[in-house]
Design a protein around this nucleic acid. Structure first.
Lengths: 343, 343
DNA sequence: CTGAAAGCGCTTACAG
DNA sequence: CTGAAAGCGCTTACAG
């Protein structure tokens, strides 16, 4: 019986009840109801009780649009989702997004997504110019990133999932340099002799960082870099193919790929050429998507917690919006999954 | 010079200018400016001109929150993003989302995402109860879908990317039944003898539809169904493994998987067992992710245009919101990519 | 064709 | 501790 009533009032409340209705039912003013809900201003304990009960009873939800207008806030955060073709197959970003959605809801924000391309941030501009968000999360960065320049100019709070030399930017990232360095060092310690690197577009900062880790590892282990073993800017599968064919002409014992899409292509070519992994050549990758795990042999890969990146980014951004002044970088852990492909 | 001025006013305008400012500059009333912008109500052509120029000059963007409050709209559409673990690796949903974002922006809407799980739609409820969206897009459906029941009850406009028997629901989908039927029929026509099916969770309508297509194909070709060759509810990789091992004991010439994640696992087990594709056994899948394309051999797969599903869903939803009464189902094309894995 | 005014549903000084 | 009133930035009947 009770339940039925609640159900009914819940239905009615959808798009109907206002703060005035509940003020009337209680015989108090709208101001009082508002204060009870927000907890701001002096207000009697007992009054708060009564208001809260009434709200509960009717399943009343204040209209956040109106609230937003009144205090010049939207209670929305924006997420800039990469729409470039190189990223369309990487679930990394959607997992980040899940993390952001989760914290946002917990902190009473909603998340609005917009797409950005390397050279086209019109939709991002539209979003901030229409004042639909209180801040934005960038999910990757380029050398000379136009989204960053734009956001900086507008003064809107934003955070970056990624790393930048510009430390005025609030950053959340895994230590990609270190992760790659450690992976390569482990291989070297395992007496793996020639290690080639196939990296994606160098305009993506993340690829640069992984290359840097590769260089560092060689240097720290007293191995001289062979430039012929580093293939960067392999953004299309044609380039990957060229790289692999070049590598196969040399004395290489392992191919490290900066992401799983590249790695998938590499595995395919190796099979085509009749090379077995790890027998003839070892392979390792970054991101550790399900396909790397279920591949035969399973592929050694560095895994990141994309959801956590999203959660933290959301939390930090909302912090900024609400006045937090901490602008330090958050560095998250990575995991090296050593699997059969490098044994 | 001109450009610099525009840049400057653009900066200033971020979060500052209102309709009143531009009314003042022009010596007209706010009402007039509003009418010029919206194009509603009678208004002089020349006045519109002047208003538009002034708006252009200052790069003024009306505050959509205020507009929303005034006409009880948010100009936001919601997208319910699956957060269940089975889907986390499928880029399908993120590509849909890109499509939605694109139309939405074109029609002057923004898209807010929320996550839903099979048994937990609290975040969806929160979103609609807070009145942050004018409608929502569901991106998949279950048998007995609680999200659908909920939305239906609230009366908010919504569309489904997926298929349902309930034709009061506006649906946008590929014809999964037909796609699977055709794929199986092609195999049969090619004289492939035993065709096994490994399908995901039967609570997902899409998996049911693909199974249905499989049944239809057998029936239409006068082949009696062998229940032992159909493995449904293979939601975890343990089940997939069991299924494959069972299949290998039988006389099976082809394994059809209802999605690429299952297929990845199947390929791995086959390799482990020393079976070659397509020599010893053929394999086909659904979704056609990049890993299917770059696999060696490339995998025969049915591909869908996820972006287009998103675009159309967005367009239809906004139509509904704005009064469109067309509730017919939109059926999109699929592509069968016949590749080496079934040759 | 245009303007003054009321309203959308909240918040928050300002009085009391 | 509480209320009346003004304000957030728009829209839209209602007059003219």
């Amino acid at each position: 019986m009770k339940q039925m009533n609640e159900e009914n009032s819940s239905i009615l409340s959808t798009g109907k009840l206002t703060i005035a209705d509940i003020a009337e039912e209680l015989g108090v003013s709208k101001s009082t109801v508002s204060r009870a809900i927000s907890g701001k201003g002096r207000i009697g304990k007992e009054t708060v009780q009564r208001v809260m009960e009434c709200i509960e009873k009717h399943n009343f939800k204040p209209n956040s649009i109106a609230k937003g207008l009144a205090d010049s806030r939207t209670y929305n955060i924006g997420v800039a989702f990469p729409a470039d073709t190189d990223f369309i197959n990487t679930p990394f970003f959607q997992i980040c997004l899940l993390g952001v959605c989760e914290v946002a809801a917990a902190l009473d924000y909603d998340v609005v997504v917009t797409t950005v391309k390397e050279t086209d941030i019109n939709l991002l501009k539209r979003l901030v110019e229409h004042r639909k968000v209180d801040g934005v999360i960038l999910t990757r960065n380029f050398t000379n990133d136009i989204a960053i320049s734009y956001l900086k100019k507008t003064g809107i709070p934003y955070v970056l999932i990624g790393s930048s030399d510009d430390d005025t930017i609030v950053q959340i990232d895994n230590n990609n340099v270190e992760a790659c360095e450690k992976l390569i060092s482990l291989l070297i310690a395992d007496d793996v002799k020639g290690i080639a690197l196939i990296a994606g577009d160098r305009k993506h900062m993340v690829n640069r960082h992984r290359c840097e880790g590769y260089y560092n590892a060689l240097k720290n282990n007293g191995i001289t870099l062979e430039p012929d073993l580093v293939f960067s800017d392999c953004s299309s599968s044609v380039f990957v193919e060229q790289a692999v064919r070049n590598i196969l002409k040399r004395k290489v014992e392992c191919i490290v790929c900066t992401d799983d899409v590249i790695c998938g292509k590499v595995l395919s070519i190796l099979r085509e050429e009749g090379y077995t992994v790890p027998g003839d050549i070892k392979v390792a990758s970054f991101y550790d998507s399900i396909y790397m795990q279920t591949n035969n042999p399973p592929i050694t890969a560095i895994g990141f917690n994309a959801e956590e990146l999203g959660t933290i980014a959301g939390k930090r951004l909302i912090g900024l919006i609400e006045g937090d002044t901490n602008r330090s970088k958050t560095v998250l852990d990575y995991e090296i999954h050593l699997r059969r492909s490098t044994k």
